[in-house]
Write a protein that binds this DNA or RNA. Structure first.
Length: 585
RNA sequence: GGGCGCGUAACUCAGCUGGAUAGAGUAGCAGCCUUCUAAGCUGCGAGUCACAGGUUCGAGUCCUGUCGCGCCCGCCA
């Protein structure tokens, strides 16, 4: 199914050619949703822009365009308003036909993309032997959502977890554990991740203070990198331990990822440096091999280098990222590579992208995108920390969301005198808690910092997950009450749009495809949240004004169809956010 | 010193390629349940879009500068 806006765009282009000649074939009809419902559904701003070129008044141009416009099937008679806007209102019959068409379509009228791209979404990426923190939570939630949307659009998506499982920190940690807790290096589960994190902090402190220890740690890195049996085994144990811990979080969040950590690229690092040398970009500075960057300077105004091999011969993250980039392009055949990390790494991405481009490693058809996001702040507007100043453990954060959701639910059950099973309560609390956390994150423009507030995200009012889940549950409740078989409804019933609320709802239902198309380009999940929030509001208004079960036929069936499509749209939209729905709540 | 981002209602935030009178939600006030889940709906008030210039028929949106906040800046990731 073609989207209405696309169809209208084509009609406008034809009208422009008919009116002003083929020179105007490329003119953008500037077709956008109306800025205010009283102006109709869509507006074209083309006449205003053409005024200078045609040396005519915008309103005159608008009239000429309308004379050549053949949209009688879709719209009521266009109206010229203000300085020269062309306002369009979609015909109810056209809307009815569109709604009827999507009703029988499992994809709700959204056709998969025709030019399938190989897309890599690199997200989550926690560090082994460290606790996942809220920054990883944002990356995980946003990355998963983007991956889900691209997958639904039909793209060939590879979700990669670029875990920090390599590098100097392991030498440090292993050396330290050899001293204080050798069993951790030989026995699975000898210590839990929390202890490991403590050891890691102690090791870091020791590393910073003790030169002898630094030397021991460096030797340990060399041992590990050269493949020494016991070091290797110790490293593997640490990784497995962390991996299990991460998996618990991913299970809670319902997130799938393919782990391909930094260590994977280890054998490819020497080639990166060698090939850079061949391009002539590589320089040596203070013993380090580096590429000097364009447009980046240090405090003294000197060009800044991207270091790919340290003076001690070791490699660092820039090298790994370059190796990963080449692998993704030449082995995975990625055409679009999306990195979901915090905005603090913007420099790093701009830098190694630049080097890769100058080295000629990025084919024209490949797009590199850093999807960055702001910090998670506490309600004091500072970086989110526990009261004691520690980073917040993700598991505890999710637990608290679920506990609070449960407390809210139980209070309400008591208030309404409802009896529900423990299983029901536990499930509803879990879904609400987790979705509240996810939705709070996704519903904000990712570029800005985000203030984390349990009270706001779990609130029953406003742009929150519970509000959307409630709208869905309300519809399902109608279905139960009326004993409706929505599958059978599809066969013979037709939608009739008469009341204002019905028209408004139907128009909104038809816009999902456009919204998803935009998100595929700008990768802003908050646009989908906004769409779903508007949908819920419009449904609630409809619910308030239009009785469904008590309506007479054929209105009753027609309204049931609207309910059905709304529910399916909410379910689909929420699933793209990584959020489950509840039949009852 | 440089880079990136942000600055919109009392608070938290939307605002898509520049378009009509800048929108939501919270909080406040006033209404609506014998009716499909009131976790809802309706109404009211609330703004120098940080500031100053510029481009344009038209700027919250683009350009330049200033101020404020945050993050990042050579051998950690």
């Amino acid at each position: 199914m073609n989207s209405t806006i696309e169809e209208l765009k084509t009609k406008f282009q034809q009208a422009l050619i008919a009116a002003f000649g083929s020179d105007y074939a490329e003119v953008d009809p500037m077709l956008v949703p109306a800025s205010n419902p009283k102006f109709g559904d869509y507006q074209s701003n083309a006449a205003l822009g053409l005024s200078k070129q045609l040396k005519q008044a915008p309103r005159t141009i608008a009239e000429t365009i309308i004379q050549h416009l053949q949209i009688g099937e879709i719209c009521l008679t266009p109206k010229i308003a203000g300085p020269g806007f062309i306002n369009l209102t979609i015909k109810p019959e056209y809307l009815e036909a569109q709604v009827n068409a999507i009703q029988t379509d499992p994809r709700l009228g959204i056709s998969p993309t025709k030019n399938i791209q190989r897309v890599i979404v690199d997200f989550s990426s926690p560090n082994i032997a460290k606790e996942m923190h809220v920054g990883h939570l944002r990356s995980t939630i946003i990355g998963d959502c983007i991956a889900r949307i691209l997958e639904f659009q039909g793209e060939d998506v590879l979700r990669l977890n670029h875990v920090g499982d390599w590098g100097t920190q392991f030498g440090m940690l292993i050396a330290y554990l050899r001293e204080v807790c050798p069993e951790a290096l030989t026995t699975a589960n000898a210590v839990d991740l929390g202890d490991l994190v403590t050891f890691y902090k102690q090791a870091k402190k020791r590393f910073d203070e003790d030169e002898t220890f630094q030397e021991t740690a460096r030797k340990e890195v060399v041992k590990l990198q050269s493949g020494a049996e016991d070091s290797r085994r110790a490293w593997q144990l640490l990784c497995e331990q962390s991996r299990r811990e991460f998996q618990l979080i991913y299970d809670w969040l319902d997130v799938n990822l393919t782990e391909r950590g930094e260590s994977f690229y280890n054998p490819l690092l020497p080639d990166v440096v060698e090939d850079l040398a061949k391009t002539g970009l590589l320089e040596e500075d203070a013993g380090a091999k580096c590429v000097f960057l364009e447009g980046f300077s240090n405090k003294e105004g000197q060009p800044l280098p991207l270091i790919v091999q340290k003076s001690d011969g070791g490699y660092n993250y820039a090298t790994t990222d370059l190796a990963a980039l080449r692998y993704r392009i030449f082995q995975d055949h990625a055409e679009r590579i999306i990195y979901v990390t915090d905005a603090g790494q913007a420099n790093h991405f701009a830098q190694f992208f630049q080097v890769a481009k100058r080295a000629g490693w990025i084919p024209d058809a490949v797009e590199l995108v850093h999807v960055s996001f702001g910090l998670v702040l506490g309600e004091d507007n500072k970086k989110l920390k526990t009261r004691s100043g520690e980073t917040v453990r993700l598991k505890e954060l999710l637990d608290e969301a679920i506990d609070r959701a449960r407390a809210d639910l139980e209070a309400r059950l008591q208030n309404d005198n409802r009896q529900e099973s423990e299983e029901f309560i536990a499930n509803v609390a879990r879904v609400i808690g987790i979705s509240a956390v996810k939705y709070a994150d996704l519903s904000q423009n990712r570029n800005s910092n985000y203030v984390f507030s349990f009270d706001k995200m779990l609130s029953l009012q406003g742009n929150t997950a519970p509000y959307l889940l409630y709208a869905y549950a309300r519809i399902r409740s109608i279905g139960r009450k009326g004993n409706i078989d929505f599958e059978r409804l599809q066969k013979d019933a037709k939608v009739l749009l008469q009341e204002e609320e019905e028209l408004v709802l139907a128009k909104h239902l038809l816009q999902l495809s456009e919204v998803l198309k935009n998100i595929e380009e700008d990768l802003l999940p908050n646009r989908l949240c906004e769409y779903l929030y508007e949908l819920s509001k419009k449904f609630n208004k409809f619910y308030e004004e239009c009785a469904v079960l008590k309506a007479e036929e054929p209105q009753r069936s027609s309204r049931l169809i609207l309910c059905d499509i709304t529910a399916r749209t909410l379910k689909l939209g929420l699933s793209l956010l990584g959020i489950q729905v509840l039949e009852r709540m």
